[in-house]
Every structure is written in structure tokens, then in C-alpha cells.
Nucleic acid binder design. Structure first.
Length: 274
DNA sequence: CAACCGACCTGTTCGC
DNA sequence: TGCGAACAGGTCGGTT
């Protein structure tokens, strides 16, 4: 269930392994994986292409393809993984839905038990992502920029943080961690934040996401997020609130509580987040 | 419009 | 131990 830090970790490793490599063959198993175009069109666009720049917008990976001026877009959703496989004879893991064979002999496999994830190949400007807000890590330039994005948002600040059209990349874990870091209550209406609060929020976005990227993302459960090489991240060790119901708040030592916002769990400290 | 809900799926963990 | 319920890091579309 990757959010921005996990996708960024995968992006950097993919760039090291894939840039300049040619996709010699592609295979799709699982009809849901390709759903914005026909499998035939996807394969036709992928095969023979060389991978150029590898970008990220929020939780989406974007692999530029040469010389076609197209781009391969990947979204892992809840359970998707991209795995680097040095030896293509390696037995397929269950729920392997796509394979990209490379001219080096290695391959990239897309594994996704819940099948929510998807791949597609589109034009380089990725019109499907046109309505996205600035990337939370790389495109949010100042507290005033954040303030502009929050303007007119009369919904809970957590909802806004997770709205990809406002700011791209933040999901349920990092929204809770950012709000704790900024000492803000999740239910506070975004358009009522004071200037100091917005400054704290901006700083918290950078602090929390930056720390998580440095730790190669959060791997909370055994079966969940893995990097390109199948390794876990360690950002979960720095979590102050997420999945810590009943444990001591790192600031005041009172128990972390869990509430619902919509259907999602929210972890927070009622004393430190006023 | 804001808030909530189910749907899409499989796998793991929780509670009795 | 067994078994069903609850829950999971995302997103969309529909209803109230």
C-alpha cells in the first residue's frame, strides 16, 4: 500500500536499473491490470521501447519511453509490487500480472494480489494526471503555496491532505504522521488554519516525507510494501501515531487513540493535536 | 456541497 | 484450534 515515500524509493531504484534499457518483451496475465487500453495496444507500445527518464507524480510512476514519446504509467494501489528479477527463470510468484523483459536479460515483475493496481501506456504529458496537485515532496514550494492549495477547502484538513487533486502523494499513514508533527487535529477544517498552523503543516510535510524516503518507506505488515529488491523499509519505526492505538504518545505519553474519518482509521493524540 | 458508503479483490489478523 | 468478522497503506462513483 505504497504512498509517496514508497513509490519514490521504487522510482530511484528503477532509474538505476532501467534507464537506457530496452524492453525486449512484455507479458500480461490478468485482465484487470490493463484496463485503460487493450492488452494488444499496451504490448505493442511496450515492446522494443527504451526506457528514458523515470518520473513520479504523487503515487504514480511514469517511465518515459523512447523513441515513441509515450510513457508507461504504473499505480500500485493497495497491494501492487514491482520486483526486479535478475534471472527470468525464477518461478513466478502468485499474482504476477505483468512482466517486462529487458535487453540485459533481467526482468521487472508486477505482482498484485488484490488486483487494484494498473499499468497503461499513454502520451508523454499523461493527461490522465492533469488534474493532480503539486507533488508533496518535490513541487510544494512554500507554506504560501500550501496555503493557496488549502484555500476554500471547508473539509477536514486530513481529507485535503489526502486529496490528490490538492496535493499529490499523501495517503492514510503519512497524513496522520504529518498532522501529529504539525500538532493539528485531523478534523480541523482546512480553510480555518491560522498562518502559524499552515507553516507548521508545510514544515511537517517535508519533515515526515523526507524522513520516510530516507528510510526507504514504511513496511507495516509482513506481506505488504517491499522495494524493488523485495526488501522492507524502516520508516514505520519512526511513526508517532499510525497503527499505534493505545501506545504512548511520544510527546505527552498519553495513549494514542483511533477514530474513523469516513471508512478510514485515523490515529492521533487528543492532547497534542488540539 | 460535505460526509459517508459500497465497490473493486485477496490476505492477514482479531475476537470469541 | 477453528471460524467468521474486521481490517488493510487507494480510488471511484453513488447516495444522503
Amino acid at each position: 500500500m505504497p504512498e509517496l515515500p514508497e513509490v519514490e524509493t521504487i522510482r530511484v531504484d528503477l532509474a538505476n536499473e532501467l534507464t537506457g534499457r530496452r524492453i525486449t518483451d512484455a507479458a500480461i496475465d490478468g485482465v484487470r491490470t490493463i484496463r485503460r487500453q487493450s492488452v494488444a495496444e499496451f504490448l505493442e507500445r511496450a515492446e522494443g521501447a527504451t526506457v528514458g527518464t523515470i518520473r513520479r507524480k504523487g503515487k504514480y510512476l511514469i517511465l518515459d519511453l523512447e523513441p515513441s514519446q509515450l510513457a508507461l504509467v504504473v499505480h500500485l494501489r493497495m497491494s501492487g509490487q514491482l520486483l526486479w528479477v535478475e534471472d527470468p527463470a525464477t518461478p513466478l510468484m502468485k499474482h504476477t500480472h505483468a512482466r517486462l523483459s529487458l535487453d540485459s536479460g533481467a526482468e521487472i515483475r508486477f505482482v498484485d494480489p488484490r488486483t487494484f493496481g494498473e499499468l497503461w501506456i499513454t502520451t508523454r504529458n499523461t493527461p490522465e494526471l492533469a488534474n493532480f496537485g503539486p507533488d508533496a515532496l518535490t513541487e510544494l514550494s512554500s507554506w504560501k503555496h500550501l496555503s493557496d492549495r488549502l484555500a476554500g477547502q471547508r473539509v477536514p484538513v486530513k481529507v485535503v491532505l489526502m486529496n490528490q487533486e490538492v496535493i499529490a502523494g499523501i495517503g492514510n499513514i503519512y497524513a496522520d504522521e504529518i498532522l501529529f508533527e504539525a500538532r493539528l487535529r485531523y478534523s480541523r477544517k482546512a480553510d480555518t488554519l491560522t498562518t502559524p498552523a499552515k507553516k507548521r503543516l508545510f514544515d511537517a510535510v517535508g519533515t515526515v516525507l523526507g524522513r520516510a524516503v530516507a528510510r526507504r518507506g514504511s513496511s507495516l505488515a509482513d506481506s505488504q510494501y517491499r522495494d524493488l529488491y523485495g526488501q522492507v523499509g524502516t520508516a514505520q519505526r519512526t511513526h508517532a501515531v499510525y497503527a499505534r492505538e493505545g501506545l504512548a504518545c511520544p510527546r505527552c505519553a498519553r495513549p494514542i487513540i483511533r477514530s474513523k474519518l469516513g471508512a478510514r482509521s485515523t490515529y492521533w493524540c487528543r492532547f497534542c493535536q488540539q
